[in-house]
């Protein structure tokens, strides 16, 4: 369970999040959509404390985070529960695909080298990269790199996975392979997934709920069948009109 109450974050004078509220239940898959600079990325980065929110409250299962206090122990607990997939993959360039997945298992979970490596190989197989174990990131395509990154995240067995525009940095022809891996992950429903994305059709297909964010708040949320078809707020309508010009959502 995730419960976010009145979360606020600013960078200097720039207020990015102006009181965000959200409640998710276990196993739910939600997408966050909205214009650039609306605070989507900042919001999910607050959830694993890569950004420290200024005010509000985050509850993740039994862990409570209340700014401005972020005890190292709590931060650690949060990050063990919450995994993240980044827009620019952020694989470790000095490690092979296998080592990228195994390094967290060894250093964080304390698994033995052989155990970590065999587990890592399993996860890489799951994302369709069984033949790329010993490749360095520089020798993988963008789509393959992102799949390694997803395997790295899954291997830590988080209960929540955050995805920050996981396909935005990919060549169009590689988007598909990453989306199908994500689809597989979220449909298993063993994790709660929060996906920031501009792939509206994908969001529509896989999300239990879609949140529309603008100017640092959630303007509107609902199942895709409602939000995409019958948005109630003008800002949502204007945004969707730009992205889905062919979809008829007017009543």
């Amino acid at each position: 369970m995730i419960k976010v109450t009145d979360l606020k974050k600013s960078f200097g004078d720039l207020e990015v999040l102006m009181g965000v509220n959200l409640t998710l239940s276990m196993g739910e898959t939600v997408s966050i959509i909205g214009p650039s600079g609306s605070g989507k990325s900042t919001f999910i980065r607050c959830l694993n404390l890569l950004e420290k929110p200024n005010a509000g409250r985050i509850e993740i299962d039994d862990i409570v985070i209340e700014p401005p206090n972020f005890p190292a122990k709590i931060v650690q607990q949060v990050r063990l529960k919450v995994g993240m997939v980044f827009q620019s993959f952020n694989l470790f360039p000095h490690y092979t695909a296998l080592e990228n997945v195994a390094v967290g298992l060894m250093t964080v979970k304390g698994f033995s080298k052989s155990h970590a490596r065999s587990l890592a190989a399993e996860y890489l197989e799951k994302v369709g990269l069984a033949d790329k174990l010993s490749n360095y990131p520089a020798h993988l395509s963008g789509g393959q790199q992102q799949r390694v990154a997803i395997a790295r995240t899954l291997a830590m067995s988080p209960t929540i996975i955050l995805m920050d525009e996981p396909t935005s940095a990919l060549d169009p022809e590689l988007v598909h392979e990453v989306l199908s891996v994500i689809r597989e992950v979220v449909t298993e429903h063993t994790v709660t997934s929060i996906i920031v994305t501009h792939e509206l059709n994908f969001a529509k297909e896989i999300s239990d709920r879609v949140f529309f964010m603008d100017k640092g708040v959630f303007v509107e949320a609902g199942p895709p069948s409602e939000l995409f078809v019958r948005p109630t707020k003008d800002r949502t309508k204007a945004f969707l009109a730009k992205f889905l010009p062919n979809d008829d959502f007017t009543i």
């Binding site: 694993n48 063990l80 993240m84 980044f86 952020n90 967290g104 995240t153």
Partner: peptide
Amino acid sequence: IPKGQMEAAYSVGMTTTK
């Protein structure tokens, strides 16, 4: 070293030292 490297390490649960 790009900022994303430290963030990725944090996101798999590593401490700053590790």
